[in-house]
Structure formats: C-alpha cells, structure tokens
Design a protein around this nucleic acid. Structure first.
Lengths: 103, 103
DNA sequence: CATGCCGTTATCGGAAAGCGATAATATGAA
DNA sequence: TTCATATTATCGCTTTCCGATAACGGCATG
C-alpha cells in the first residue's frame, strides 16, 4: 500500500547502502542486485549500474576487474573519500531518521 | 563533501518527513520549507509543491485552505491511509537503516 | 582458430522527478 | 482601484529511473 514510499526511500538510500557494503568487502553488480532482492527490493540494472558509475566517477568507489571462471567482474570497493562520506552521511541521515521515532 | 549523498537521502526521505509532520499538526508549504532550512536542508518549491500534490492525489494527505492575515494557505494534514503508510514505511525504512549501524 | 555460450556489464529511449526562475492568485491596505 | 505581499503553481531544462536490449570477453568445443 505504501510501497511507493518505501521505494522512494530505498532509491535515496541506495548509495549509502552500496558504500556500506563496499566498505565491508568488494561488491559487484549481479551479486549486489541479488542481495537486494533477497531483502525484497528489486532494483533494475538500468538503475543500479549508473549509480555505481557515478559513485566511482565521483571518487567514492574504486573498481577492479577480475576474471572469475572466465567472466569479467567489476569489483567495487570503497575509497578513503567514500569512507569519510559514508561516515558523514550516516550521521546526517541518523539525525533525520531519529526524528521519525521521537515520541 | 558528501553533501550530494545526504541530499539524495533527503529526497527519498522527504515524503516520510512530510507525513510525520502532517501527522503531528497541519503543515503548509512556506513554513515546512523554512523548517527544513533551519535543519540545513534547502528544497526548492519546484520540488516541494509537486510532492505535496502527489501525496494528496494519492490519498496520504488532505488539504484545507485557510485565510491567514489576508493570505490563503493550504494546510495539509494526514489521512488514515497516510497514517498506515507512514507506520508501514517507517518499519521498512528502519530495517534498511539499522543495517547501516550494525557492527 | 572459429564459433557459440553465458555471466556480466553497458546503453537506449521514453517517462518521471528535481529545481531555479517566473508567473499566478487572493486578500487587505492605501 | 491600485498596490504590496504571502503563498501557491507552473515552465523548461536537466537528471534520474528502468525495462528492454545490446555488447563484451574469455572459455570450451570441434
């Protein structure tokens, strides 16, 4: 019923989500999409890849190609700038978010 | 530095923020914009009004015009559907959000 | 080596959203 | 009746969303 609201939230949230995961370990498109789907969120590659590209272009992620069983994967991992941005964004987002749960 | 990430988050978050405030008391555009600004977020009317309109069109908000000191204001308050949507969306958003703060 | 396979990434085109600038509206005051 | 002002609405351009489709790249097989 409120699914459009949840989706809008996810779309704004997705970059933080990506940085969070890319901080823990390198991630790549196909796997990340499946991980989202496991949690019930379906994001198309037409949305996802451009987000990765932009995060890389802006220096939050760095990419490394790897040949895995004969196929090229692009593993994205977080940069120092990305770590700082994530930390800062988390703090700001938390401020906004906490207000929602005030009494 | 990571302001674009925070802004993207805000844009996805804004509807929940609006519903939250419209649940506490009726809100109108100018005041709501100022309230955001006090918290450091600058959202243009070109963004804000269409969001209000869509939330109303979709039944999450209802609007009532009031003449205040000779000027027409459109006060938005939450509907029953909006309350349910807010509750549901908060829960889903919290799931996503909490993961960010896992150890 | 040529060909096909397939996991993976990339892009296209139309629709929707974001947004600064500008216009429109409505009312009270002068 | 005109003016000032608070408020809402819209325009046109840019960017994002996204399903569909294409492209890539290396391996296996003959």
């Amino acid at each position: 019923m409120a699914d459009e609201l949840v989706r809008d939230f996810l779309l704004g949230f997705i970059k933080l989500h990506i940085l969070y995961h890319a901080r823990k370990e390198p991630i790549f498109g196909q796997e990340f999409k499946k991980e989202l789907k496991r949690h019930g969120y379906d994001i198309s590659f037409g949305t996802l890849y451009p987000v990765f590209h932009k995060l890389e272009r802006n220096g939050y992620l760095k990419v490394e190609e790897k040949n895995v069983r004969g196929k090229i994967r692009k593993y994205y991992s977080i940069t120092r700038k990305g770590v700082n941005a994530l930390k800062h964004s988390k703090a700001k987002a938390k401020e906004l978010f906490d207000e929602l749960f005030e009494t």
